[in-house]
Design a protein around this nucleic acid. Structure first.
Lengths: 334, 334
DNA sequence: TAGTAAAATGAATACGTAAACAAAAATTTA
DNA sequence: TAAATTTTTGTTTACGTATTCATTTTACTA
């Protein structure tokens, strides 16, 4: 690989001048500028970004710790994050959540220098939080947040839970099952609390028969759904904690010959793009904005990084986006 | 950030000794070893990977240039690639194809030093190929390949095209439409050629009425499918160039009130995981192996990187994996 | 045209690590 | 116990770039 020194001696100038041509061309004489540029061309020179990073102390790369892509929510956020970052000159190092074991990934992230970290998959009481804090690198949580707050962009999960439940109740449903994931995740916790509160407001009993916690795997969702459908007091509606869960539920139901929403209503949360693509049109609750949480989060993170570089200051980003109902066709009046 | 020098002076040794503790601890006296390790702990020392990369000339990171994630095929390959690389100590920098404009991404990839490149989204005559070659970095193509060959892992697209077509013909279909993407991609070209050959073997006419080229967007697929269904000589089967296309087609059909396979049979290619998850079970053709092409490709690529590091040798990886029919329930005898 | 200001260039150094080589300390051998 | 090994540690340099500071060249002023 050819270095700036090679270019320098080829062009008959010092390495400093070559560096200047790259970083402050206005400070170099037109004639030598051309001479050096030509040398660069002829030697097919590429500045070594590693060496640059070493001296600049920035890598222009960001680590993304994402939930699994079989959840369409993360398909959208990952796409947004990668593309936006690229447009801003940043690279994204992608890592996938490993069954809640964020510490191992943390080691990984740590060992490659990054200018920032963006993560969706943190638990409400995740010990990784304080490790990340020690790092003194901007990090942004999206989707889920941590008890210590920090920087985050989330939807108003509690409101989402309320809206979805209210919608079902408006449609006359009285026997509703909540089918979600671990309440150690702030998303599920908020949505569940919203469900419970509205249920209580309408004097509905929320007992163990109405609450199902899955590990969000297809397998488990199928089993739980199967169990729900085989009960004598079969519910008339299922409130799925995420669209991903809702889609698995509906796939299962259709496979088994049930009709949605004729036999049972299903509502999700997240408003993933896929919910409009599908052969069924999923009723769901999602953020008001056109965009997604990943997009908002990466914008804010890059702002933070730039702010820090320019002024060495830092401020908190704590954003809870309001939600609304996307009333489509997997719920109906009974 | 604390450096190895800081650790050195804190522990009362030279920086070299600190370096040795990290890279060849067996060469350092037990007592000083402990002393240095303690110092590292107390100062919360982390070796700077940038500086390491500069001297080692390896970054342990790989650039992935992938097709878009709304195609489930790339969801699977990306997941496999990221996870496998991580297990082998590599980071993945993800980039998404930008409407065939690989050159802009190429600049990006180039500017961050990587040990290897893995890309799915190359055109058969893509000019980026010779640029990549100049780079003198191992690069591996999967899914699609380039006319110049290089390193690639693909399925036997031609065979896949034949198998799918043969399957439909076995089911008595005589009016089959091929609905695929640009033939500038080796995948579509191979599958199309297979379709045409078998069709001809059975004396079936393959004219413009049977060939539809989409840009693989949902929008375009919907339009083309709509057009196909509104024709007087409506086909009895659609051969979709990929599962992704097949899924869009079926979603459209079901939305419009058609039944699959009762009203029309649909077959895809790729055998994506999702094709089994869905409310319909997609009939498809895919590679024989349990795994996916991305997985195979990343394994080979890392082998290449290691081989190159160890022996400074290089060899070609050129693999065409055989395919088979996955006969599920979106095709039927007529 | 001498003197001064401005523009252009170069020499030296820093970033944090690894490694070649040299030197010192500990151990073994005779 | 002195010489010869072996083990352990340190000094120095390289990796490729950016930057500070000093120096040279050019342009301008009176």
């Amino acid at each position: 690989m050819t270095s700036s020194k090679d270019v320098a001696s080829y062009a008959g100038v010092s390495q400093t001048t070559v560096s200047r041509v790259l970083n402050s061309p206005e400070k170099v004489n037109q004639k030598t500028l051309n001479k050096v540029k030509r040398a660069m061309e002829e030697l097919n020179y590429r500045p070594n970004s590693i060496a640059r990073s070493l001296v600049n102390k920035k890598t222009r790369s960001i680590a993304l710790l994402s939930g699994p892509l079989h959840n369409p929510f993360f398909v959208e956020t990952t796409t947004s994050i990668v593309n936006y970052a690229k447009a801003k000159g940043f690279n994204i190092n992608v890592h996938f959540e490993n069954f809640g074991d964020n510490m191992s990934i943390y080691e990984d992230v740590l060992n490659h220098q990054v200018d920032g970290i963006i993560l969706s998959s943190i638990l409400y009481e995740d010990p990784v939080y304080k490790e990340l804090q020690k790092l003194d690198i901007p990090f942004m949580m999206f989707n889920r947040k941590h008890r210590e707050k920090g920087n985050y962009v989330e939807m108003d999960n509690f409101q989402a839970g309320r809206l979805a439940t209210q919608h079902l109740i408006n449609l006359n449903h009285k026997n509703i099952v909540w089918l979600g994931g671990p309440l150690t995740m702030s998303t599920f916790k908020g949505r569940y609390d919203g469900f419970k509160q509205v249920s209580n407001e309408y004097g509905m009993d929320v007992n163990d028969n109405h609450i199902f916690i899955t590990d969000t795997s297809k397998q488990d969702i199928f089993e739980k759904t199967s169990h729900i459908m085989s009960r004598k007091h079969r519910p008339t509606a299922i409130f799925a904690g995420t669209d991903s869960i809702a889609i698995y539920v509906i796939d299962f139901l259709i496979q088994k010959g049930y009709r949605v929403p004729e036999d049972i209503s299903v509502i999700g949360v997240d408003n993933v793009e896929l919910s409009r693509h599908h052969s069924f049109q999923l009723t769901t609750v999602g953020i008001i904005d056109e965009t997604n949480l990943g997009q908002i989060a990466i914008e804010k993170l890059i702002d933070l990084i730039n702010l820090r570089e320019a002024y060495n200051t830092s401020e908190f980003v704590q954003e809870t986006v309001k939600t609304k109902l996307y009333n489509r066709s997997t719920t109906k009046l009974i």
